[in-house]
C-alpha cells in the first residue's frame, strides 16, 4: 500500500489503521451527560411545544395579540356608533314593551316615547335603578343606574374621579387606548341604549364590557405595536429558506448593518444547526 493512497482508510473498517484505531480506548460519555441529554429530549417532547414552534408561537402570538388588540380597539371605538344605532327607531321593534297590568292609561299613552329604554320594564331592574328612574324626569338620566352597575361589576372599583382611566397607572397602555376608553366612557348613553335594546342582564353586559376593555388594555399593553424592529425582522428571516437567509445576511453586511447581520446569523445557527456557516460570515460569530 502506498502511504499516499487513502484507499486503505476507505475500505470497510478502515484497513489496518482502522483496526488499530478500534483498539484504542472506547471512551463513553459520563452518565451525567446521558441523564442531561435524555432529560432534555423528554422535556422537549412533554412540553408539547417543540422549541422551533415556540419561536414561531412567539411571532404568531405577537401578531395575534396585535390583531386582537386592534380588533378590540376598533370594536370599542365603534361601539358608540352601533349603540346609537341601537337607540335609533330601527331598533325599537326588536324590544317588546311589557307594561304592568295596573299601569295607568296615561302611562300607556306615553309608552312610545319610552320605547328606547325598555329594560326598566322588561328586565325588572333593581330597586335602586327604579328609584333613579323615578327621581330623574329626563330620559337621558335614565341609564345612569346601568352605568353605575357596570362600574360596580368591574373587578376593581374606580375611585371617585369618574374621568380617570379605568386601568391602573402601572399598565403601559398606549395613548390610543385611553382615548378609546375615554370615548367609550363618554358615550354611556349609547352603551346604555344598547344594553337596553338587548333587554337582558344589564349587569352581565356591563361585566362583559369591562372585561372586554381590560382585555383590550392588556393586549395593547403586552403586544405593543412598537415591537423592536430587529425582532420583527428576525422573525421574517426565519421564514426564509436557508440559502436565502444567508444571502439576506450578506445583504445586511453590505448595507453596513453588522449588528443585525450578527443577530440574524446567530439565529440561523440555532435554527439550522446542521447547516455550515459560510466562511465569509463566520467572522460575525466571533
Amino acid at each position: 500500500m502506498s502511504a499516499r493512497d487513502p484507499d486503505d482508510l476507505l475500505r470497510d473498517g478502515g484497513g489496518e489503521i482502522g483496526d488499530l484505531y478500534r483498539r484504542l480506548p472506547r471512551y463513553e460519555p459520563p452518565r451525567r451527560l446521558d441523564r442531561a441529554v435524555l432529560n432534555e429530549a423528554a422535556r422537549a417532547v412533554h412540553s408539547g411545544r417543540p422549541p422551533r414552534r415556540q419561536r414561531w408561537i412567539l411571532g404568531v402570538g405577537s401578531a395575534a395579540g396585535l390583531v386582537l388588540a386592534a380588533g378590540l380597539a376598533w370594536r370599542i371605538g365603534h361601539e358608540p356608533m352601533s349603540a346609537n344605532d341601537a337607540a335609533a327607531p330601527a331598533e325599537v321593534p326588536r324590544v317588546v314593551p311589557v307594561q304592568p297590568i295596573d299601569e295607568p292609561a296615561r302611562s300607556r299613552r306615553e309608552m312610545p316615547a319610552r320605547d328606547a329604554a325598555p329594560p326598566s320594564a322588561a328586565a325588572a331592574p333593581p330597586p335602586e335603578q327604579q328609584r333613579a328612574a323615578a327621581a330623574g324626569g329626563d330620559r337621558s338620566d335614565q341609564p345612569k343606574p346601568l352605568r353605575k352597575q357596570r362600574a360596580e361589576s368591574k373587578p376593581a372599583p374606580q375611585p371617585p374621579q369618574a374621568q380617570a382611566p379605568p386601568l391602573p397607572a402601572a399598565s403601559p397602555a398606549p395613548k390610543a387606548f385611553p382615548a378609546n376608553e375615554h370615548e367609550a366612557e363618554q358615550a354611556p348613553d349609547a352603551d346604555k341604549a344598547k344594553d337596553a335594546s338587548a333587554g337582558i342582564a344589564p349587569a352581565a353586559r356591563g361585566a362583559a364590557a369591562a372585561e372586554k376593555r381590560a382585555a383590550a388594555a392588556n393586549a395593547l399593553g403586552r403586544a405593543s405595536p412598537t415591537l423592536p424592529s430587529s425582532s420583527v425582522e428576525l422573525q421574517r428571516d426565519m421564514q426564509l429558506a436557508p440559502s436565502d437567509w444567508l444571502a439576506h445576511i450578506r445583504d445586511l453586511m453590505q448595507q453596513g448593518r453588522r449588528q443585525q447581520a450578527t443577530e440574524s446569523l446567530r439565529l440561523f445557527v440555532r435554527t439550522h444547526p446542521d447547516r455550515r456557516v459560510p466562511p465569509d460570515l463566520r467572522e460575525l460569530l466571533d
Binding site: 442531561a36 441529554v37 432534555e40 429530549a41 422537549a44 417543540p50 440555532r270 439550522h272 446542521d274
Partner: peptide, 18 residues
C-alpha cells in the same frame, strides 16, 4: 467534549422537526 456533546444533542432535539 462534554460541553459540545451535550450541545450537539440539544441542537438535534431543537431541530428534530426539520
Amino acid at each position: 467534549a462534554d460541553e459540545l456533546f451535550q450541545d450537539t444533542w440539544s441542537r438535534l432535539v431543537a431541530a428534530r422537526e426539520r
